[in-house]
Design a protein around this nucleic acid. Structure first.
Lengths: 107, 107
DNA sequence: GTCTATACATCGTTAGGCGATATATGGTTG
DNA sequence: CAACCATATATCGCCTAACGATGTATAGAC
C-alpha cells in the first residue's frame, strides 16, 4: 500500500469525511508531508471502494457543492492494521541496519 | 520508496553484497515477508545506481559464476534514514487513528 | 471582476514491482 | 547419466498506483 492510500484510510479512521476533507486531513496528519491531489484522491477512493476498504456513507449538498462522505470498513481497518505491522517491522529492520553500519564505520 | 527498494538498501547497510545475496538477505531481514525476484532486483539495482544510492563495489567469479557486489553510498544511507523517518511518522499516525476509532466504537 | 477555496472528474504519463523467460554453472538425487 | 535444483545475472512486458494537468462548477473575498 502506497503512502497516499494509507493516509486516506488513516484520515477516515476517526470519522467519515468527504473527498476534499480527506485530502486536507491527510495533509494535517502527516504535518504537510503527504499532499494528496485530486488525481490521486478520487482514483484511490474508487479503488478502495472496489476493494471494500471504504464505502460511501452518504452525500449532502453544502453551499451548492456536493459532498460525498466515505466511511472506512472493517476490512479497511484490517488492511490498515496490516500495513501498520509491516511498517513497524520495516522500521525495526532499518534501525538495526543503520545502527550496524554506523558501528561498522567506527570500528 | 517501495518496500523492495527499502529492503535492498537495508540489506546493503551491513556490508556489500552481490545481487542474489541481496535478495536472500532481504527475505531474511523481513522474515520471509519481502520476496525480491530477479525482475525486481536488477531493475531496482540499476535505478539505485543511477540515483547514486548504491555503487558497484567490485566483481568476482565464484564457481564459474560472476558476482557483482554493490555497496550503499552516503546518499543511500540518507535516503534510507529519510524513509525510516517517514515510516515512523506513518506508524504513529496509524496507531493514533486506530486507537481513536476503537475508542469511538466503544463510546 | 478577478482570485481563491471548495468539490468532484478524467486523462496521460511515469515509476516501480513482478511474472516470465533466457542463459550458464555446478552439485544432488534418482 | 539424466533430470533437477540452487546459484547468478539479464531483459521483456504487464499492471498498479501516484500524480500533474485540465476541466467544470459554486461562492465568498478583495
Amino acid at each position: 500500500m502506497r503512502p497516499a492510500t494509507y493516509y486516506i484510510l488513516a484520515s477516515l479512521a476517526g470519522e467519515p469525511l468527504h473527498g476534499y476533507a480527506i485530502a486536507q486531513r491527510a495533509g494535517e496528519l502527516s504535518d504537510g508531508a503527504v499532499k494528496i491531489t485530486a488525481g490521486t484522491l478520487y482514483g484511490a477512493l474508487d479503488r478502495l471502494a472496489d476493494q471494500g476498504l471504504v464505502v460511501v456513507d452518504h452525500e449532502e449538498v453544502v453551499n451548492g457543492r456536493n459532498r460525498r462522505y466515505y466511511r472506512i470498513t472493517d476490512d479497511g481497518l484490517h488492511a490498515m492494521a496490516e500495513e501498520l505491522a509491516s511498517m513497524r517491522s520495516a522500521v525495526a529492520v532499518g534501525e538495526a541496519a543503520i545502527g550496524q553500519f554506523k558501528l561498522g564505520t567506527v570500528l
